[in-house]
């Protein structure tokens, strides 16, 4: 058990993803969008890691890398199938299926994540067929089990996607993933399109499933409070890099990166008015095409020093010395805010 806790299930090492920017009549590459610029992330068994950040920070790209829907420009992706970490960025068709059985993904928009012309039950069944579950009885019992887990009546599976509400569809998407019995589920903004009361249902459900099945989750969201509530650990991203990784309980008081603190202070919260550290951010996120050469946050950081503009900080143990708290910042003592 201890070894399982200490060796990651899935490891991403200095992942880079550059998209070429073309221009001119000849469509030549004139620059690169650095969507991910060297991201390290370890995902352990039985944990939920929340990835937060604002639009354009690369969190969705990171999710797609982890699901190997796109290949990274550079870096290593290794997954533990049971006998140590293996490369998963370059798989043949058979290995890919084996990987996809272990790692599932749920998408943001519940309205388009099911084929509109396919009954949801058929859609679920098809996934199991592709993954080699030949016995129809077993497929049905697995689907039934998954539906029970998300509180969805099996009779509803006869329906078409448009006959469900957004929240129900998101539950069905979760059930479809669960039926495959994966070890890791990557959830990309799955509650952001829902009304708050429905969002609460899905959040509670995810937490329940995580507790009962011991699955690992990567929970990508822009909502810091939901991320803290769902995740065991939080990875904060800014402009293509992870700037801080911290245990969820450390939020909001013990955040150390100036960007994390600024992000937290911008989140409206009725229970914390006047109690948070305040860093008001000016301006906007720079374009990832001409990202700063040093620390990505150096152009907006109120605590910027000379070294920040030239040298990129890497993740190091945070000043509070707590296990699992890492921060990528040149400041030796964390800022206190205003």
């Amino acid at each position: 058990m201890t070894s399982k806790k200490t060796t990651p299930l899935y490891q991403a090492k200095s992942i880079k993803k550059y998209f070429p920017v073309t221009g001119g009549i000849l469509r030549r590459t004139i620059g690169q969008v650095k969507a991910l610029d060297g991201v390290d992330l370890d995902i352990y068994r039985g944990e939920t890691i929340s990835v937060i950040g604002e639009s354009g920070c690369g969190k969705t790209t990171l999710g797609r890398m982890l699901a190997v829907l796109q290949k990274p420009t550079d870096g290593e992706l290794t997954f533990d199938f049971g006998d140590g970490l293996q490369d998963v960025a370059h798989l043949d068709r058979g290995e890919e299926l084996a990987f996809r059985k272990k790692v599932q993904m749920i998408f943001q928009d519940p309205y388009t994540s099911f084929n509109p012309r396919q009954r949801v039950g058929v859609a679920m069944d098809e996934v199991l067929q592709v993954h080699g579950v030949k016995d129809p009885e077993e497929r049905f019992s697995r689907i039934k089990e998954a539906c029970e887990m998300v509180n969805m009546r099996v009779e509803y599976l006869q329906r078409y996607p448009h006959e469900f509400s957004g929240g129900q569809r998101q539950r069905l998407a979760i059930a479809r993933c669960l039926a495959v019995k994966p070890e890791l589920i990557i959830a990309d903004e799955i509650v952001s399109a829902l009304d708050v009361s429905i969002q609460a249902q899905i959040v509670n459900l995810l937490r329940k499933i995580q507790k009962e099945t011991g699955l690992s989750f990567v929970f990508i969201t822009h909502d810091v409070a939901v991320a803290r509530y769902v995740g065991h650990r939080i990875a904060v991203m800014y402009l293509g890099s992870v700037v801080e990784i911290l245990p969820a309980e450390a939020l909001p008081e013990n955040a150390e990166h100036p960007y994390t603190i600024a992000l937290l202070s911008a989140v409206p919260d009725m229970n914390l008015q006047g109690k948070k550290k305040q860093i008001a951010l000016q301006g906007e996120v720079p374009s990832p095409i001409d990202a700063p050469s040093g620390c990505a946050f150096s152009t907006r950081c109120p605590y910027v020093m000379d070294i920040c503009k030239t040298t990129r900080p890497t993740l190091r143990i945070a000043a509070d010395g707590k296990a699992g708290h890492q921060v990528a910042c040149h400041l030796e003592t964390p800022p206190t805010g205003e």
């Binding site: 937490r207 509530y229 229970n271």
Partner: peptide
């Protein structure tokens, strides 16, 4: 009560309607 606060107790379930 259905919106988690940054100060929420993680042991308490969110209230749903």
């Amino acid at each position: 009560q259905s919106v988690p606060s940054l100060a929420a107790d993680k042991n308490i379930e969110l209230k749903t309607v």
